[in-house]
Design a protein around this nucleic acid. Structure first.
Lengths: 136, 136
DNA sequence: TGTTGTTACGGGATCCGTAAGCATG
DNA sequence: CATGCTTACGGATCCCGTAACAACA
C-alpha cells in the first residue's frame, strides 16, 4: 500500500508532470520527490511515470491509478478536515516563542517552552497547526 | 493529515472496538495501537474513541470520521491493487531462502541471497510480496 | 551547455516490541 | 484480581536535505 507522503507526491506529480514544481508545492527537495516516486515503482515493479530529464508523463497504469485515487483522497482529506473543524469549539490566535537560553527576558504573551528538544516540539506544533488550520 | 498506518489502525479499531484484536489483525503490539490511536488525537485535540480498560467506543467525531474515510479508503486500496494486478504479466511461485553462512549447501530452487543485510532484504521482499499478492 | 532528474551519504525523527504500570469491572 | 489499555525505553528503519552525478534537448 502507498504511504501518505507517497500518495501526495504521486498525485502532485501526476498533475504537475515536473519534479521541481512538485517539490516546491510539497515543500521538499526534488531529490526526495524522485525517491518517493521511485520507491513504490520498485516495490511493485510497475512504472507510474515515463520520464527523461526533459519530459515527464504518466504511464497507462499511472493514469488509471490517478483516476482511482484522486477523488478518494479528496474525500479522506475532506472528512478529516471536517472532523477537526467540527471538533474545535473556540477559535483564536496563539503566539509561540522558542528561547534558546535559560535566563531570557520574560515574554508577555503566548506560550513559553524551554529550548530542550526544541525541534521536536516545533515539529509537533507545526503538525498540530497544520491539521487545525487546514493549510500549510 | 492521517498517516497510512494511522488510518488502518483507526478503521480497524472502529470495527473491533478492542485494542487487542485490532493489534492481532494488524500484526502489531497492542502498545503500538494505543500510541497510534493516541497520536492524531493529541495532534488535533479531538478524541476519536472513548475508552476505559473495559470498554471502547467511538465518539461522535470518530463515527463521522469513520463513515467519511472507510469507503474512500477501500476505493484507494482497490485502485492500487488493480493497478498492481493489471501491471504484472506473468504469475507463478517464488521460493526464497536466507543462508546464514558462506559455504551453505547449494539450493535447487528459487533465489539465494547472502545474509548480509538480511533483515533489510527480507523486509523489502515482504513489502513487495504484500503488494503483489494483495494479502498479508 | 544548461536544465532537470537520479544517486550517495549522514543526521534526526519515528515506528516498533518488550516490559512494567495502572485502572476498571 | 484479572483483563486490557497506557507509559517507558532502546534499537532499527526511514524520511529528509545537501551535494555530486548523469542525461536529454
Amino acid at each position: 500500500m502507498l504511504e501518505r507522503h507517497e500518495v501526495e507526491a504521486f498525485l502532485t506529480l501526476a498533475e504537475e508532470l515536473h519534479f521541481g514544481r512538485t517539490a516546491e508545492r510539497l515543500r521538499v527537495s526534488t531529490a526526495r520527490i524522485s525517491q518517493t516516486i521511485a520507491k513504490p515503482e520498485r516495490r511493485t515493479g510497475i512504472p507510474l511515470f515515463e520520464r527523461t530529464s526533459r519530459r515527464v508523463e504518466l504511464t497507462a497504469a499511472g493514469r488509471r491509478l490517478y483516476e482511482g485515487v484522486r477523488p478518494a483522497w479528496d474525500q479522506i482529506t475532506g472528512a478529516f478536515e471536517q472532523a477537526v473543524a467540527s471538533g474545535r469549539g473556540l477559535t483564536g490566535t496563539l503566539r509561540v516563542a522558542f528561547v534558546p537560553f535559560e535566563d531570557a527576558p520574560p515574554l508577555r504573551w503566548g506560550l513559553l517552552w524551554r529550548a530542550d528538544n526544541a525541534t521536536a516540539r516545533l515539529r509537533a506544533f507545526a503538525e498540530a497547526a497544520h491539521d487545525l488550520a487546514g493549510t500549510a
